[in-house]
Computed example of a mutant assay.
Amino acid sequence: MIFEILKTKIEAIIESTEKTVDERLLKVCQLLEENISYYNWVGFYFKNGDKEELKLGPYVGAPTDHTIIPFGKGICGQVAVSNENFVVPDVSAQDNYIACSITVKAEIVIPIFVNGQNIGQIDIDSNTPDPFTDKDERFLEFVCAKVASIL
């Protein structure tokens, strides 16, 4: 299964200490976007200091205007408040959705915890309707746990 192969590669990226944290996070984004066909935009958002907002970190995919997202707004902002995974099979059915691109059909957001605090998240958009399964969730929880180890 692709996720098992990617886990080993994720670990290698995270452990490559000669690169900066941002360089490693970008490599993680690239790896996911290149190897999982329905991951069309992959990026990290992090709590912006002591503000109640998220700031865009490393990402791959189409450029976005959404570099700052207030807590509670959109899927990412809701995860910042709920501290829970959010899988959206159909973004058009969400009232509190921030559209980044008209091609996006689905989204998955998994929080990153450091010392029990939600400090950020991985955000993945897909141009495929309803592509995410429990396996995606478990895999991305693994990715977030590895990322947390270097933050």
Rank of each mutant, 00 (worst) to 15 (best):
78 Q>G: 02
106 A>R: 12
108 I>L: 12
111 P>L: 03
118 N>G: 08
83 N>A: 11
99 A>Q: 13
78 Q>N: 06
94 Q>G: 00
78 Q>F: 01
103 T>Q: 12
88 V>Y: 09
89 P>W: 00
105 K>E: 15
68 I>H: 07
66 H>R: 08
72 G>M: 09
102 I>K: 15
62 A>H: 11
116 G>N: 14
63 P>Y: 06
117 Q>T: 11
103 T>E: 11
115 N>W: 09
76 C>R: 00
63 P>Q: 05
97 Y>S: 08
73 K>L: 07
82 S>Q: 12
62 A>F: 14
81 V>M: 14
71 F>R: 04
90 D>P: 04
97 Y>I: 12
104 V>I: 14
115 N>K: 13
80 A>F: 01
76 C>N: 06
117 Q>M: 13
106 A>S: 15
118 N>L: 07
90 D>S: 13
118 N>V: 05
107 E>Q: 12
108 I>S: 05
61 G>E: 07
81 V>C: 13
68 I>S: 03
83 N>D: 12
107 E>M: 07
111 P>N: 06
112 I>W: 01
105 K>M: 15
81 V>P: 07
118 N>I: 02
67 T>P: 00
95 D>Q: 13
63 P>E: 05
91 V>F: 05
108 I>P: 03
117 Q>W: 09
87 V>Y: 05
60 V>D: 01
93 A>R: 08
118 N>S: 12
76 C>K: 02
66 H>I: 01
114 V>R: 09
86 F>V: 12
82 S>K: 13
87 V>N: 08
100 C>H: 01
108 I>C: 06
88 V>R: 05
70 P>S: 12
61 G>A: 12
71 F>N: 03
62 A>G: 11
72 G>A: 11
62 A>E: 15
108 I>T: 06
79 V>P: 02
61 G>T: 05
86 F>E: 09
